[in-house]
Design a protein around this nucleic acid. Structure first.
Lengths: 201, 201
DNA sequence: CGGTCTCTTGACGGAGTTCAAAGCTAGTGG
DNA sequence: CCACTAGCTTTGAACTCCGTCAAGAGACCG
């Protein structure tokens, strides 16, 4: 696994970009996180379980997705370095989840258990603000995604994804990109064909 | 306008369902809110402006939406009683908005200005928790909506909306429901036709 | 009333799905 | 290190759902 010190440094930088948390306050919460190596294709969460963790990714890339009755995968989120990933509903309510979370590459994460979630705001009140700000950013990004899904064609949504998350598009397979966009791999292949033709002409 | 006392009672109930804020703490923030009547079809926000308010709806129903280049409306959110509505991105960054917010019915709202947003967490720290919890709920609901948009047919999304927000579906026109679902009014009309036929058969 | 907006219904076209097959790539084991 | 296989990507053809355009019927408001 990655040096644990480096993993916490990444988390601390992430917090400091968003709040003025002191080093002392941050150091109080490090004991609440459990570092974990997640091998490629290994699951952090499977359908039917209760989601026990918030995960902060320090290396690699994970995804959350569902599988429908006909076996189709639908990717909700990619989580590369410095992203959080979880099923918040299952995590907060202890209801069983409908989601899977697994690693697309060998990854390292810092896990925060539900029991620690209760404690973290008492130990370091600035975390309340940190998570509020994270959720605000997520609110804005997810609403933009909803707007795209109700107002744009598949090609336009793909272009938007290329612009907003170019590194993700390079990193994961087109099958996964298609799943994230809500189209078939065949449709994405044809969109890409059209786009290269238009660039050449 | 509605009795202002009643408007704050509604907000206080909403806060108390989510946090253990004391009556004293709540009373400190009431001065930061401005009650406002919004007439039917009146705008709270228009494209190009900076969004100056968070609005808590105590009566009536508002919506947020965009208008694309070809003049099509795309509804992001409905906000009936006890819902918050704003363009969070414009509100937080002071960039100009691409959204419209207007009233579908005569409505009453409590407005919180950006300047007050700076103050409210200092005056009443429990509001940090309240908004974090609101944003958590929104995270869960919006991700469910994204999942629907990438995995369900228009008919299934309509059924999901009927199940989750039956009161909204009764309250707004089918044109608006269609806009929220990302389909045309014609398509929704045919979906409804199909559904009544299937019930009868 | 008269006019505007909403909802419905029909015909047609297009974007995307499904099913099938073939080529390509990358990971695995001998 | 090579060969093999499994999964990924591409391409084709037929089909389906939904969008567009158009017209008519019903509902609401001034």
């Amino acid at each position: 696994m990655q040096d644990v010190r480096r993993m916490f440094d990444l988390l601390q930088q992430h917090v400091l970009k968003r709040t003025a948390m002191t080093a002392e306050e941050f150091s109080l919460v490090t004991a609440l996180f459990v570092p974990k190596r997640v091998r490629k294709n290994a699951y952090l969460l499977q359908e039917g379980e209760v989601c026990k963790y918030l995960a902060f990714v320090t290396r690699g890339c994970l995804r959350s997705y569902t599988i429908d009755k006909s076996g189709g995968e639908h990717i909700i989120q990619f989580a590369p370095e410095e992203w959080w990933i979880t099923d918040l509903y299952s995590f907060l309510t202890a209801n069983s989840t409908e989601y899977f979370i697994d690693a697309l590459e060998e990854s390292d994460v810092l896990l925060l258990e539900a029991a620690s979630w209760e404690k973290i705001f008492a130990v370091a009140p600035t975390f309340e603000r940190y998570f509020r700000i994270l959720l605000q950013s997520n609110y804005i990004a997810t609403h933009r995604r909803v707007l795209g899904s109700i107002s744009l064609s598949a090609e336009q949504r793909y272009i938007q994804l290329l612009e907003e998350y170019p590194s993700i598009v390079q990193r994961v397979t087109q099958r996964h990109i298609a799943s994230y966009l809500g189209i078939t791999p065949e449709a994405l292949s044809r969109i890409r064909l059209r786009m290269t033709k238009e660039v050449k002409s």
